[in-house]
Design a protein around this nucleic acid. Sequence first.
DNA 1: GGCCTTATGTGATATTCGTCACTTAAAATC
DNA 2: GATTTTAAGTGACGAATATCACATAAGGCC
Lengths: 204, 204
Amino acid sequence: IPKQLIPQIDEALRSELQTKGHLKKLETGEVMLRENANIKAIPIILSGTLKVSREDQAGKELLLYYVKPGESCVMSFFGGLHHDTSKIKAVAEEPTEILLISTEDSNEWVKKYPSWIDFIFYLYHKRFEELLEVVNEIAFQKIDERIIHLLNKKASLTGHKEIITTHQQIADELGTSREVVSRLLKQMEGDKKIALSRNKITLL
Amino acid sequence: IPKQLIPQIDEALRSELQTKGHLKKLETGEVMLRENANIKAIPIILSGTLKVSREDQAGKELLLYYVKPGESCVMSFFGGLHHDTSKIKAVAEEPTEILLISTEDSNEWVKKYPSWIDFIFYLYHKRFEELLEVVNEIAFQKIDERIIHLLNKKASLTGHKEIITTHQQIADELGTSREVVSRLLKQMEGDKKIALSRNKITLL
DNA sequence: GGCCTTATGTGATATTCGTCACTTAAAATC
DNA sequence: GATTTTAAGTGACGAATATCACATAAGGCC
């Protein structure tokens, strides 16, 4: 099933993925990995999107990044190897197909396929940079800027200027409260930056 | 020079580090790597401490983590490979000795020494988890809690209950202002959690 | 079409934090 | 020991955000 999804790996490895990987389909909203869960496998996204977020003790959430087709949740990689528990939560944003790779297989491929190593390194690095972005945002940006940024991210993810979401959801992803988001969105509507309707925000 | 510093690598690689690595000494406060600089080598800390932080456009700073002996600044690893520029700043907290590894050597070792791969993976993972911690802190904790946490971290780093620092420095590391830090510290002193004097904070 | 659920709008108010404008104090230098 | 530099203390104020308490509206469902 995997093809030009992951260009950086070689053919032999690609066919190993085919035979050893275990296909799984997730519904929208289905939780792939919850915090503190044991990590048993490494998922590679075939289609759809995973949303990765962090929660604090009080249950407040914060979006970290999206995992798109051809990518993987790297935390699983090393974590799986060392019987670590997950520090993050991963939820399907839309119907999503993933290929589960056992930690044993991955471990073996590290020895056999240099391109597997490259792939993992690439993902680690990418996620690392994304995390740095998140740090920058929450440390230095005001919530209205963060909302704009999030809306743009969501729009580029789907390719639509219309974003199907609720204010509550945005608030959760930014770790703030619904009222704050509603107020700021209303303000942006006044500034003709967006148009609001129930369950939908349109970028202008 | 390297010895039981990095237990996870094997002897052959250890001697390669000896011969190929280039020793460098940094003074306190000396900048090893600034943001947007080209990455030419991977540093391994032999003694001392590197402080890694992020800056925003306005020049505000934020401490990300400390790099201790036997560890490395992983951003360099992949970044060096792909001629990336640095997203972070690294400064010596105290007189620090580092071993510089060229990206070419590292690249070769990836093929020759499995333990080098393990080492890099381990560091990536560790740094990743630390970054997640930072995200949690700035997203969910109030500044007084973050100050306490920082003081404890500094104390455990040196092994002393007396921390040599200024309020300004703490403010910088947390990305806030000096006045805020002074006020909150004063409050903690009232609560008998710490004792204050010029250039020094003592944990009680 | 009426009812119910869920989403959104909004005022009032409290906290937390950032900023400005100083003062005071400690240490460093001469 | 007087002077200068640097660190710390503090009041006043403003901005950003959080929280509470509702009112209103939009869609789904019977």
